[in-house]
Amino acid sequence: MSVVIYIAVMAGVTYLIRMIPFTLFRKKIKSPFFKSFLYYIPYAVLSAMTIPAIFYSTGDMTTAAIGTAVAVFLAYLKLPLIVVALAASAAALLTGYII
């Protein structure tokens, strides 16, 4: 089968999954439960994706743990996204050179 057809199916399904709820959902949600649920969803998704995956993200647990510690500290201080993200990476890189 042509690879182009596979790609078309992949892209089509993925787009519809994103487009349908985002486009059709026009009402402001009133239900307090559903409102709270949607409020917590992003934080729950992000933390589930981050932990424990972050400790495997550099291919070395030690550099990843140092990078994570730096990121947690800077995030706690509410520094901007880019600062936290790059500092985590820089800390992992430096740790890699030291050990």
Partner: peptide, 11 residues
């Protein structure tokens, strides 16, 4: 680790 660092900075 960059993307995960960004996630931490959000939550």
């Amino acid at each position: 680790i960059v993307l995960y660092g960004m996630f931490l900075a959000i939550f």
